[in-house]
Amino acid sequence: MSNHESHENHVTGYGVYLLVWLGLLMLTGITVAVAGIDFGRITITVALLIAAIKSWLVLTIFMHLKFEDTTFKIFVFVAVITFVVFIVLLFADYLFM
């Protein structure tokens, strides 16, 4: 079997984690602050976009996805796409009622 063990030795420094944490707190601050402003229909989009960025940070750094090999990245992609497809097809019904 091919050697996948590269990850095993990867150690992320405390500093990186702290930076990501600060980033996450800032994004939380932004999303709360922005919530007061009414952008109309895109309000929800902005909120979800910020949430997506936050999840992306958690996934790649906290969950080490960045240092895993391609198989894992494909897995995550497949799982997320599956969910997105469920939403899109579900709204193929509801959006056109």
């Binding site: 599956t82 497809v85 097809l89 193929a92 019904d93 509801y94 959006l95 056109f96 009622m97």
Partner: peptide, 22 residues
């Protein structure tokens, strides 16, 4: 197979677009 579930619901009152796609 994961994209065709709503063909069990063709008489349930889905939108025409939904029925077309599924």
């Amino acid at each position: 197979g994961s994209l065709v579930w709503a063909h069990h619901m063709f008489t349930a009152g889905m939108s025409d677009t939904g029925r077309f796609v599924f």
